[in-house]
Amino acid sequence: MSAYHVLSYWDIVAASVFLLLNAVLSILLNLGLTRTLIVSALRMTVQLILVGLVLKLIFFAGSLLWTVLAAAVMGVFAGREIWVRQDRRLKGFWGPGLGAGAMLISGALVTLYGLAGQIRPDPVWQPQYALPLFGMILGNTMTGVSLGLDTLHTALAKGKSEVEAQLLLGRTRWEATRPFARQALRSGFTPIINAMAATGIVSLPGMMTGQILSGVDPQEAVKYQLLIMFLLGGATGLGVLGATFGSIWRLTDPRHRLRLDRLSGGTS
């Protein structure tokens, strides 16, 4: 295996040539994309440089407290993202709480399992392993949970008469909402299923590419990637299931009524 080639900052600048070319073309063709293109490129640059610094500090400090704190910050941002991405949200504490809770519980559980069971760094919370893994798991679970909840809430708000028709025939709240639960679960699972199906044929996963570029044997990189994908799939599944059924539980009550009054957004 060849040794790891260290990039200089000039290499990075040189790599941005084509992006700048796109910006120039956009000006010439009057596409109006220049601004957003430049702004997002700059934003990405600043964010990544900062994250690199922060991660380096945390790795260097090697303290459990800082690692947990960094994980908590990631969780808060991801939780907020779930909340923002829903058109109709649960009212009150449940709005941000349920989605974030489902994501954090399943994400933390699966991350700890992966760390303690398979990757086994010493100590187990070593930030160099824990944070990237938690980040990947959180990102995927976040996407799944927000899609699932958004689908569920929209469908329930539109399908009031369908749910109540079933309740009126003596079905339980779980039976009456089953078609909607199925819809929500399918939409929450779709990204991870698509990712698994396309991986390796259409695209080489970013993490695996990174490992190969940094000199790791491709077969070893594949093993790591598989491990990650299984963990991602597991965490996403648990998160979406928890959030969907949690939300159905909240949007119905023990007398098997549909409680759309606990949902915000334009009531139809």
């Binding site: 008469s161 369908e162 028709a165 009126l168 025939l169 078609p179």
Partner: peptide, 11 residues
């Protein structure tokens, strides 16, 4: 058993 004026159909 209650039959509302507007019935719901889920399938």
């Amino acid at each position: 058993s209650y039959v509302p004026a507007e019935s719901g159909w889920w399938s």
